[in-house]
């Protein structure tokens, strides 16, 4: 697979390490009342859709940026890739 790195252009997926569902960026608040239940969901529950999936890739053999890649899991078509820093920044 080739991943369109927002800064470096098309890069071979072999340069990356895969982590999984981008929901991992939404770490719960530890001070919340039901923090333990929220953390259980956060740690153990992931969506595994057949179709469009937002997921985290680490450009480990590259510029060390974490990317949020939108990929169709049924075709491996890559619909977009953003820097996780930008995604997180935009969410603020």
């Amino acid at each position: 697979m080739l991943i369109p790195h927002p800064l470096l252009g098309l890069r071979d997926s072999q340069e990356f390490t895969y982590l999984g569902d981008a929901s991992l960026m939404q770490r719960p608040d530890a001070s919340a009342e039901n923090a333990e239940a929220q953390f259980c969901d956060y740690v153990f529950l992931r969506d595994n859709p057949a179709g469009v999936h937002r997921e985290l890739w680490f450009h480990e053999q590259g510029d060390r940026s974490w990317l949020v890649v939108t990929r169709d899991t049924t075709t491996h078509e890559i619909l977009g890739a953003e820097l996780a820093l930008d995604v997180k920044g935009a969410a603020k």
């Binding site: 390490t17 982590l19 991992l24 960026m25 770490r27 985290l56 680490f58 480990e60 060390r64 940026s65 974490w66 820097l83 996780a84 820093l85 997180k88 920044g89 603020k92």
Partner: peptide
């Protein structure tokens, strides 16, 4: 060594970029 560094970058970029 590699995994902890990866985890730290994850924390920095994906959890607490501020």
């Amino acid at each position: 060594a590699g995994l902890v560094y990866r985890q730290m970058e994850f924390a920095h970029q994906c959890l607490w970029p501020e």
